[in-house]
Amino acid sequence: MSQSNLKLLALDTSSEGCSAALLVDGQLYDRFELAPRGHTRLLMPMIRQLLADQQLQASDLDALAFACGPGSFTGLRIATGVVQGLAYGLDVPVVPVSSLAAVAADALASPAIAVGHGVAVAFDARMGEVYWGCFEDRDGLPVAVADERVCAPELVSLPNQPEGWCGVGSGLGYRDQMPDAVISRLQGIDENLVPSARHVARLAAEAYRQGRAVPAAQAQPVYLRNTVAWKKLPGR
């Protein structure tokens, strides 16, 4: 199926942001709200409104996507539950998308942030740790150049290539604890970027074309920690 014919619904509740995005025949429509305690209340109305605005029924969708983590335990469970329920009912595949990659995609879409060709993404993982991912720009989309991981800020690192990097995400609030060898290579920093369904949809469309969609049962959250910690959303 070509991108111009794909109808895909993407969801994100992995952080304090709650969002849904609808990709229809190459056009992207989305709803986003910062609402740390409002995911359950907001998500389904967002989905219904997006479909109604484009005069579509859920049965018209070809695929679903969601930010699978890492991120808030509570938030990840919300998106996972909704996307699995819809996928089972509609009998459509699901594309899990890294929350770190979604933020990297956002950075690459903004020349003011993505100074170089590399994006280091850090989320606050609580417990004195960060979720860390490193991506390079390939035709405007982020491609991981190292495994995503959770670690103490003192243990983060950057690959040798590419040479230029920017740092984004709430975990950069710990940059005073990060190695000088990392911080000195960051040509720009933005702590405020959070995952959004808009960029989840962009990445999911490419993954869908590459055959990387999975059945509903395999649409699972990614926590990175071996033992899941109950990381609450702010305000919960």
Rank of each mutant, 00 (worst) to 15 (best):
D12T: 12
A109F: 01
L186M: 14
L90A: 05
W230N: 10
A35H: 14
V143R: 15
A105G: 13
F123V: 02
V24D: 06
Q3A: 13
H117V: 00
W165K: 12
V119P: 09
Q57F: 05
G85N: 08
L28E: 07
A67V: 00
A67F: 03
D176W: 08
R185V: 05
V92C: 09
K231V: 14
P70T: 01
A35G: 00
F73D: 05
L28M: 09
P111W: 07
F123R: 07
A21D: 10
R175S: 12
V94D: 02
V92Q: 01
P221K: 09
G38L: 14
A120C: 15
A217G: 13
A146K: 12
R149H: 01
Y88D: 07
V168P: 08
M44K: 04
A107H: 02
V94C: 09
I47G: 05
A87G: 14
R225P: 07
D190L: 07
V103L: 13
Q84M: 08
R31T: 11
G38S: 11
F123A: 08
L6I: 13
L51G: 03
A63S: 12
S110A: 13
L56E: 04
R209E: 15
E148S: 10
S14E: 02
L90W: 09
A104V: 04
D190I: 10
L76C: 12
E206Q: 15
A216V: 03
G26L: 02
C151Y: 03
G211I: 06
G118E: 10
Y223H: 13
D124C: 07
G85W: 11
R31L: 13
F123I: 03
L100T: 05
A65M: 06
R126W: 04
L61N: 08
C166L: 05
I47S: 03
A87I: 03
F73C: 02
C151R: 03
T13C: 13
G128R: 11
Y131L: 01
P195M: 12
A152K: 13
P45H: 05
V145E: 00
S14A: 15
F66I: 01
S98E: 11
L23T: 01
A125E: 03
L64N: 05
P36E: 08
L43T: 04
V95P: 00
A112H: 10
S184H: 13
V121C: 12
L56G: 04
A217T: 10
S99E: 02
M127Q: 14
S15H: 12
P159L: 09
Q49Y: 02
F123T: 02
A105Q: 15
D139C: 01
S170K: 05
S170G: 06
D91L: 02
R202N: 11
R138M: 08
G133C: 11
G235F: 08
L9W: 03
R185M: 10
V156T: 07
E148G: 09
I78L: 13
A207C: 07
G211S: 08
Q84P: 01
M178F: 11
I183P: 03
H199G: 00
A216Q: 07
A102M: 12
L108F: 15
